[in-house]
Design a protein around this nucleic acid. Structure first.
Lengths: 173, 173
DNA sequence: CATTTTTGTTTGATGTCTAAAATTAAATCC
DNA sequence: GGATTTAATTTTAGACATCAAACAAAAATG
């Protein structure tokens, strides 16, 4: 993770009116897009590592497990493996192992669907729900601590831009 | 990867003047910070998966390898394993395997340092440099295609906000 | 100078991801 | 209604990540 490229491009002359002070040569001549991607990745990995480390320390678990529980927590009716796989945007194979571990730990139940014997219905267990509640509260505090230093305005701007970007990315795929 | 929490918080009454139309309840009552984190992660994983898939398809390689080559490409004097480990923000153990593979593929050279027989000096090989050049060009095109649909203004806003966020995150650590 | 301590790298155990092949159940098609 | 197709899940093989333990070489210490 880092995707550092940053090459000396800086050729396409801007047809836009020049900004007041300077065309912002920025720390490197690389394309804006490249610089955005590097920053985005840097932010995401920093946050991800911080959350992962804390989840491990305080709850002896991981983000992947937490995310799966989070999906089940908002679906009292349960979900199938494939549904979870889609929700988490992770391959089917990855779900199998995760679910086995979580079931062994008593966090979730896995029952064969009465209608379709191929599919499993995954549900949070009672213990799982309680433990997830504890984790979610801490998780939220951590995220707020990590991002909360930005002003409210900066935050909503950032969210808006990220939402826009995500929409474009989804269209691409 | 998804870190979906989104809980029913919405308690802290805003002491700010209400916006023109609505206080923007947004799609969910979750804290702004949480929503930002989810979007950020979603964008990063989408881009990362796209780049990884293409690197594999076109060059039979991965982002991790590409990133390592990128670091060496900008350091003709070479770098030690630990330096690379720091640059990529990845543990030492991860570098060992990566370097072995890249050396076996003839992309990099690894020579023991004359000064310090514990350390290795890693350098791009000629073939490695050429191959990296090809990959970097394509990589840049891909990133531009993925992000380039955003307007220039949106892009520089986004970059600015991400830069700010990254600074805060680094201070935290 | 012999003994720590620190530093650079490797190894091993574990966790997660992917892609592709295998398995099994359901649905569909003559 | 038996054969094919589709769908849900598992398995396998290959990456890459972590952490912690083990080493070996260099530096520091007394």
């Amino acid at each position: 993770m880092d995707a550092t490229v940053k090459r000396k491009v800086r050729s396409a002359k801007s047809a836009r009116p020049a900004p007041p002070v300077e065309p912002a040569p920025e720390s490197d001549g690389a394309h804006l897009e490249l610089r955005i991607w590097l920053r985005l990745l840097a932010c995401a990995t920093r946050i991800e590592k911080a959350l992962n480390a804390r989840l491990r320390k305080e709850f002896n678990t991981t983000l992947a497990r937490f995310d799966l529980l989070a999906q089940l927590a908002r679906r009292p009716e349960g979900a199938s493996m494939s549904e979870v796989s889609d929700l988490l945007m992770v391959s089917n194979g990855a779900i199998t192992a995760l679910v086995q571990k979580l079931e062994a730990d008593g966090m979730i139940h896995r029952e064969v669907d009465a209608e379709d014997r191929r599919t499993f219905r995954l549900r949070l267990s009672q213990d799982g729900a309680k433990e997830f509640g504890r984790m979610a509260r801490r998780h939220e505090e951590w995220v707020i601590a990590l991002i909360g230093e930005l002003s409210h305005v900066a935050q909503s701007d950032l969210l808006q831009h990220l939402t826009l970007l995500k929409r474009r990315l989804d269209k691409h795929a």
